[in-house]
Each structure stands twice: as structure tokens, then as C-alpha cells.
Amino acid sequence: MNKSEKRKSQLAAFDRLLTIMDELREQCPWDKKQTIESLRHLTIEETFELSDAILDHDLESIGKELGDILLHIVFYARIGSEKNAFDIGNVIQQLNEKLIRRHPHIYGDVRADDEEAVKQNWEKIKLKEKGNESVLGGVPRSLPALIKAMRIQEKARGVGFDWEEKEQVWEKVEEEMQEFKEAFDGVNDKDLNKEEATSEFGDLLFSLINYARFIEVNPEEALERTNRKFIHRFQYLEKAAKATGKSLADMTLAEMDVHWEKAKSEPFERNRSGS
């Protein structure tokens, strides 16, 4: 199949999806009841299912989950058309126009010789389009804190507010670590100022995320890999305990440590386990 034939096939498949959506909305009792608000939590769930498939490097599942998310997009657009607010054509056309506006190095006369220049242009154009008073105004309030910290730092960098060298960032990490140690010495819990310790720990995490960005490590991915690695080793520990006829609650910490060390050398699929 050549490129032209493939495009016709893709458009035909999308047209069929729109027809099915119309039929479901008009005939299916469940689909007829749905609103933009009722679909929201389902869309979030589908997004996390796609995230799981990506972490597992499961291309087949990624394709299926993308289909589920596409269904939601079409569903929202159908509801929007019923309210005379927007339809799928409007959604796609607005996206097309935005992509052209934000890539002036492709569709205009602006130069962008590397990825960083592209990102800076994107943020400047986005800020102008949205009319935000702050560069950080476009960061969603409900983003998980770790991802939000990444986006805040990226947006600040987009307008030139950033450290110059990674060594400076590491010095900041060490400074925040020392401040945290002073706020929480771990000796006398009664004297612990939890409010101050929480604040200092947040500063420490923010600086570590900053450093990760400088050495091109995605902190969200890094933490997820560690989560998965811990799960793998802990489940190995559970199985080992069960094999000896014990539960973890019946084992001493020393006994558990023996199996934990064995778990460290236990091979498992690197991609699917994220380690």
C-alpha cells in the first residue's frame, strides 16, 4: 500500500469511527446518558492505562489504549456539537492552526537550529496566545507535584531563567540537603518542627528535580523505575517467605534481609519491570 492509499484507508477508518459514535450516542442507553463531566474520570483512567502500556514497552497494548483515548476525544466532540460549542472538525482545525503557529521554523521564517530553540519558541508563542500574566500560568494546578515541578522548571528555562552550569545546581542540592538535616536531625522527634521539615524537604526535592533536568534524567521515569524495582524485590521476598512456610510478619528483619539480598541478583525483564 503506497502513501496515498494508506491515507485514504486511515481517513475511511476515522470516518467509520465518527459514524459509530453517532450511532452509539443516538441508540445506546449508556452512551446517551454520558456528559462531559461523567466521562472525565474514565478519561483519566484510560490515560493511566496508556501510561502502564508505555512503561511495559507493550506496543500492542499502546495501540489499543490509544484507540480508547481516541474514542473519548470523539465522544467529547460529539457532545460539544450537540451543545453547538464545537465538533471534531473544529477540534482538529484548531489543532492544525496551533501546530503551524508554534512551528514558525517550519512554516515561517524563524530559525531554530536545535531542540532547545524550538522549546523556547514554543513557550514564548504559547504565553502570547494564552495571554497569561505569568509564564507559569499554563501549568495545570492538578498536575502531580513531581511532574508539576518539572513543568515549572522547563517553563522558567524557556524564558531564560535558569542555572548556567550543572555544578551550580548540585551545589544547591547540597545546600538544601544541609538545611533539611538542620530542620530534621532525627535525634529528638519531640523537637521536630514538621512544618519546617516539610518545607525544607520540598526544597530538597525541587533542587534534585532541577539537577536531574540538567543531566537529562527524567525524574518521573527514574522514580517509577525504582518503584517497580522495589515491587519486584518485595514480591520475591513474599514468595521466599511463603516457600519457608512463614509470613513476613513472622520473620525477623535479619531473615528478610537475606532474601532481599537474593532478590537484588534475581534477573527480570528490564523493560517490563522498568529497572
Rank of each mutant, 00 (worst) to 15 (best):
L146F: 03
D113S: 08
G137D: 08
G67H: 04
L146R: 07
E123Y: 04
K166I: 01
I152F: 10
N84S: 15
G137K: 01
E123V: 12
L143E: 10
V139L: 03
F86H: 11
I100T: 08
K155L: 14
G158D: 07
S81M: 00
Q153K: 14
I88R: 03
I152W: 04
V110H: 06
L99Q: 14
W163S: 03
R157M: 00
I100H: 03
G67S: 09
A77W: 01
I152G: 02
N132T: 13
K130H: 09
R141Q: 14
A156Q: 11
G89W: 05
F75Q: 03
L127P: 01
I88D: 04
D68Y: 02
V91R: 01
Y107M: 03
I125E: 01
D68I: 11
N90I: 11
Y76K: 02
G80M: 06
K148P: 02
G131M: 00
L70V: 10
S142V: 14
E82V: 02
S134V: 07
D113E: 14
G158F: 06
G131D: 09
K64V: 12
I69E: 06
L66Y: 03
E97C: 10
L95T: 13
I100M: 12
G80Y: 10
R101H: 12
D87S: 08
N132S: 13
G80P: 08
I125L: 14
S61C: 01
S134A: 07
A77H: 05
D87V: 08
V139F: 05
V118N: 07
I73F: 11
R102W: 09
E129N: 07
H72A: 12
A149S: 15
N132K: 07
D68H: 02
R78C: 05
I69T: 06
E167L: 06
L136I: 11
G67L: 01
F86K: 05
K98H: 10
E65Y: 05
D114A: 09
R151P: 02
I152H: 05
I62K: 10
N132A: 02
I79K: 05
G131E: 09
R157S: 06
Y76L: 14
S134G: 05
N90V: 05
L127K: 09
R101Y: 06
E82N: 15
G67P: 00
E60M: 04
R151D: 10
L146N: 06
D162M: 02
G67D: 11
G158K: 00
Q153M: 12
Y76S: 06
L146T: 10
E154K: 09
N84D: 13
L99Y: 12
G89C: 08
S142D: 15
L66V: 09
A117H: 03
N121T: 11
D113L: 02
V135W: 04
A112G: 08
S61M: 11
G67R: 07
K130R: 15
I92T: 13
G108M: 08
I100D: 07
A85V: 14
R102G: 08
K166T: 11
Y76F: 15
Q120K: 14
L66I: 09
L71M: 13
M150D: 04
Q120Y: 01
N84T: 02
A117Y: 12
P104C: 04
D109P: 00
K119V: 06
A77Q: 04
F161T: 07
I69Q: 00
F161W: 10
H72P: 00
I88F: 15
